[in-house]
Structures are given as structure tokens and as C-alpha cells.
Design a protein around this nucleic acid. Structure first.
Lengths: 133, 133
DNA sequence: CGTCAATATATCGTGACACGACATATTAGC
DNA sequence: GCTAATATGTCGTGTCACGATATATTGACG
């Protein structure tokens, strides 16, 4: 049975996570895309595959089912942020690439996120120790 | 313009957050409630108000609009996890309380979360420093 | 070579969630 | 008492994720 203080510390931790998440959502929405679409761009950009990750690979990176990734790519493609490319060697596969616009938007978002996380670093640093008692 | 390494570090950070979030969702779903409903219970339990927080107060804690909180409380109340109580002094207000079942479920979830966060503490500790370069 | 299982992506219907716009009830100010 | 502000609730919409299902392509193996 947790103590009052433990409930409160856990709530404080989740509140901190929520605040970062909301801040991040707002940054994305200010540029006309959703939180999840931003994460898709980052997953594509951060992928090791030179030809771009497949639908299945980004699904794995985002911890969602492949058909959820299909739908997310549909919406993001309609915004002109990513493009599909059939794998010539295995035409079941579809590789994903950022468009010029997608690359540009992600660069902007990444810059402000790195800045914000440097700002939050001391806070993040303190949180784990709070969880002890 | 961020570097390849910065994109990858940011992706790694988001992946770590996502993994914790997914793990947490699964814990909640194993007990028959959603992620958001769990956060509602925690916000109620961690509130300072002795009579229980109002709809508006939990909305503020969860960083959502008051009418989104209304809907969330509707769904959570249907599961028998929380109850509404009109404030006798100001009958515009509605205070929220955990039912016995809600208290029990939250205690279980809190116990496993405290345990998991203690396990993750060293990882969280390392992350901020990674964000430097 | 042909058949059948495995793999990769896509489609459809459903439910949770959050929102803006709007509605209603109650309290507060003057 | 009349009007502002406050607190909660309703409705229609869009995003996201899912399970169930479908289709196409590749791979394995006799």
C-alpha cells in the first residue's frame, strides 16, 4: 500500500512528463502537423537504413502495429512531408523518405527540442532520486 | 541544422519515453482501464483538496480542457472507479472521489510503477547528459 | 515447376481521447 | 434583480490505435 507521499511524487513525475509532451505537441502543431506525425518524421530521419525505413520498421520504432503505421503514413503523406517508394528488389516492401518540406520541418522541430531538453536536463536529473522513498 | 548524431540521440530519448509509456499503458489495461483513466485516478488521489478535486482541478492537472475531463470522468465512472459529488456550498462544482475499487486498482498500479521507476532510475539519470553535444 | 506458408502492406469498422462551439446552471458583483 | 463570470455538460469532428480481414509478393520444399 503506497503512502500519500509516494502518490504525490508519482503524480509530480507524470505531470512533468505531461508538460514536456504537451509542449512538444504544441511545437508540432504550430508547424501544421500532429505529435505522432512529428514522431514519424524523427523515426525516418533517425533510421539506419540508407534507402529509408520500411513501414514495418517505423511501426517497430514507434511501438505501434504495422497497419497503424500505414494509416499514419497516409495522413503524413497527404501533408507532403513523406513519400513512399516501393522496394525494387522486394516489391512487398515500401520505403519511406522525407520530402524537402518534411526535412525542413523536422530540422526546425529538432532544433527547438534539443534546446528545450538542455533546459530541462537538471530537472530530469533530479527526478529519479525523488522516486526512492 | 542538427547533426545526424543529434537526430539519433533525440530519437533514442523519445524511444525510451515511448517504452515507459507503453509499459504503463499495458499495466493499466491489464486491470481493465485505459492509460488516461489511470492518470485520472492518480490525479484524484494526489490532490491536496480534502473533499476531492473538482472537474476543473483535474482538468488542470491533466492539462486538458474541462469538458474533456467531463467525458473522461463519465467513462471512468461507468467502470465504477470514481464517483461524483456535488459541492453543497457551491452547487456548480462537482468533487471527484475514488470508489473502493478505484482505490484498490490505483494502489496496485502505483506499486508496480514505483518499482519500475526505481529500476529505470539509472537510465533516466544518463539521458540528460546524452543531450549535450 | 507448382503449391503453400510466411511476409509486407493496406482497408474497414470500432473505441478512446481531445478539441471547438455551444448550452445550461449557479454564483457574484453592482 | 440584472448581468458577468464561473463550472459543468453536450454534440459533432478529427487523430490515433486496434482487431479482423484482404491482397500481393516472396520463400521453402517436395
Amino acid at each position: 500500500m503506497p503512502t500519500d507521499a509516494q502518490y504525490q511524487r508519482l503524480l509530480a513525475f507524470r505531470t512533468a512528463l505531461r508538460r514536456f509532451d504537451q509542449w512538444s505537441r504544441q511545437q508540432a502543431e504550430a508547424l501544421g502537423l500532429t505529435h505522432t506525425q512529428h514522431q514519424l518524421l524523427l523515426a525516418i530521419r533517425g533510421s539506419a537504413s540508407p534507402a529509408g525505413p520500411t513501414i514495418g520498421e517505423v511501426a517497430e520504432a514507434l511501438l505501434i502495429r504495422h497497419h497503424s503505421a500505414t494509416e499514419l503514413v497516409d495522413r503524413t503523406q497527404q501533408l507532403g512531408l513523406v513519400s513512399r517508394l516501393r522496394d525494387p528488389a522486394d516489391s512487398r516492401r515500401v520505403h519511406l523518405r522525407l520530402t524537402d518540406h518534411g526535412r525542413d520541418v523536422l530540422a526546425q522541430l529538432t532544433a527547438v527540442h534539443l534546446q528545450e531538453l538542455r533546459r530541462l536536463a537538471p530537472l530530469l536529473d533530479a527526478l529519479p532520486r525523488d522516486m526512492e522513498g
